[in-house]
Design a protein around this nucleic acid. Sequence first.
DNA 1: TAGTGGTCTAGACCACTCT
DNA 2: GAGTGGTCTAGACCACTAG
Lengths: 247, 247
Amino acid sequence: MGTTQLETVPEPKYWHLKTVLAKALDSEFAVGEVLPNERELAARFGVARATLRQALEQLELEGRLQRRRGVGTTVAPPRVGVDVGPAHHSWPGAQGDAWQTEGCETTVPPAAVARALGTADDHAVHVVHRVRTVHGQAVATELLYVPAASVPGLSGIETDAGTARGRAVLRELNRLELGGQERAVELGSARAEDARRLDRLPGSPVLVVTTRYLAAGGTAAVAVATYRADTCRLTFGDSGAVSLLAS
Amino acid sequence: MGTTQLETVPEPKYWHLKTVLAKALDSEFAVGEVLPNERELAARFGVARATLRQALEQLELEGRLQRRRGVGTTVAPPRVGVDVGPAHHSWPGAQGDAWQTEGCETTVPPAAVARALGTADDHAVHVVHRVRTVHGQAVATELLYVPAASVPGLSGIETDAGTARGRAVLRELNRLELGGQERAVELGSARAEDARRLDRLPGSPVLVVTTRYLAAGGTAAVAVATYRADTCRLTFGDSGAVSLLAS
DNA sequence: TAGTGGTCTAGACCACTCT
DNA sequence: GAGTGGTCTAGACCACTAG
């Protein structure tokens, strides 16, 4: 009376589907190639479209696939390694900085940022918006929070224009002596505005890198950077060695 | 003929639902409190259960909620900050190491690891299994790949037992002179075995930390650590300062 | 055994991208 | 306009936990 299955393992369909697709991607598809559309794939594997989508979502999360509405599903290239220091030990805006300034405003930061800055909860600070691109593609957005006290030399003339003032803030920031950095990485989901800049849908998984820039006496600035989790692999090269883990 | 909505923004229901729930979590719920079950919440908000689940999934991804089958959905505590160096600049198994050795085997590593180690694709290496716990809870699993060449002093007597051999490998590794570390962080989904150890479902989002340990001449070992993305916030404290970002 | 979240279905319509 | 992925529905059953 032996049945075909020993230890009947009720492995979810989408899980099995995912492994099958992953193998197919390795052996039968090239980077950039487009897969059959979801309705056809679902029919081919004999599952509902929702189940197939669950498998595709996981593969996209792992950076194996790229899906774009109105276009299709393509095989993603290997993740790009982006260096997030602390090799340079320098301020934002220093030479070799990979970020491009896009604007600057003055607002009250979120409570968590205010706490890290050591400012009052209702104290407005400069917020510099920046974007990081790799191979011409935006991979991260950043909000750099700088209290006015950190940039005392900022002239009043530059306090209106967006991008110009952003650059002025960075310039003044670089006059300070850097006392170290603290970083944290966690998983998040893209806010609507970040998603737009990163060419993703709102809620897409992102890696949030929070950096605290220290100067004599305390925190001079806090940066909250949002990296595309599907395409990015954050590298931390120590000991000055060239990173071989960066693809 | 004015309609109620200007600029009819077709914001997805689950997105709106998510923000509503997030606000409610801030104002009306305490950490550890259990939410109403999914069927009731869906009815209360007038949406299908699948739509509600989409909102809950995002909140869980952001570490705001914790869902457990057969139990319910509870409000998650703030993410715990776990230090992933490079403050110590030490080998695995050194004093103060946060990991616990669970076993050791000898197998051929994945191609990507073999490449980083500089070994042949079919060359077997020691693989030490370790677990990292915080507050009594497992937050990460690790596979530490150590080529036999890195631990020449390993005696033959210790080559059979699991945990004992693991400790022996770590002991031998600490005889080497550390030449630096390289780290990379990326998003992944938990393999079945990791998920079990971390008390999560297979496919749960995890932060994968790959570390390359350098010694004179090249790569002495490679560690692939898998952290729970829902509960962990990886911290990188530089300059020896106490991390204030760690919650 | 009752109640929970997890999986799955078979549809429908919408938003977007290209031609 | 045709074709794609994204959203949503209203059900059903399963796996797990706990009293």
